[in-house]
Design a protein around this nucleic acid. Structure first.
Lengths: 129, 129
DNA sequence: TCTTGACATTCCAGTGGCTGGAACCCCCAT
DNA sequence: ATGGGGGTTCCAGCCACTGGAATGTCAAGA
């Protein structure tokens, strides 16, 4: 399988796949012409990576998840722990963003948005958000 | 005012302030010894930037907000428009993160997290999230 | 006066996770 | 032979810093 087909099937851009090889996440074989030759197993790994990345896992998390996935003797606790940590980070991010949103939303509400210079948004940025 | 004091008062690391000068957001004077000499006005700009960044505005947004702030004849509509666009992006990010959180939360719930290899998290990553 | 230590300076490199682009090679159909 | 659509490599850039090295400056204490 060439990179184009894998890209199609895994739903990842070829560039990303090359990058993943670069950083050692997949190790496709090579045809005599130098083209990457992906096995089914490479495809599955890439699809796995695509899904993990879509859930926001970092590349390093993905690397670890992949290793656990391939390890028959893994403990599900290890997987769960990675996911839980990640979940906590996401919760934090959501909370941060919600705080921003609330503030911003108030400010946008309060601003007339006309052609006059008077602006509560700038006033707030000027001194204490 | 030296960079250390400004950093303290504006709540930004010295490195960040140097960076902001690099990209032209502030233009402090220089003492004869080569040290940056910040005026009160530089300090206020930096504090403004710190608050805008804390609300998640991009550097380019900050640049524009700063220009509007300094423009006596600005229209508040221009400020509001930047804030509204940014707000919309934040809403999108929140929604994305919430979707991730929901999925992850379900998966973490479903995973026993013991020493056995059976793991619904990996199963999901293996085929369709 | 000398030294120490806390400041300051510049410049280069790295972070994460790609993405764009240039310059080139390969293969198949016309 | 030619054209087009693959593939390859490598280098650079994105964003917003951050770390670190090598060096310079200043004020206070022995």
């Amino acid at each position: 399988m060439n990179i184009g087909e894998v890209a199609e099937r895994a739903g990842l851009p070829p560039k990303t796949i090359r990058y993943y090889e670069d950083i050692g996440l997949v190790k496709p074989l090579r045809d005599t012409n130098g083209y990457r030759a992906f096995r089914e197993s490479d495809m599955h790994k890439l699809a796995f990576l695509g899904r993990a990345r879509a859930l926001g896992f970092s590349i390093e998390d993905c690397r670890n998840l992949l290793a656990l996935w391939e390890d028959q003797h893994r403990a599900s606790a290890d997987v769960r722990s990675i996911a839980k940590d990640h979940l906590a980070q996401i919760e934090t991010k959501i909370a941060d963003l919600q705080a921003m949103r609330d503030t911003l939303s108030d400010l946008v509400q309060a601003c007339a948005g006309d052609d006059r210079p008077d602006c509560p948004i700038l006033k707030t940025l000027e001194s204490s958000a």
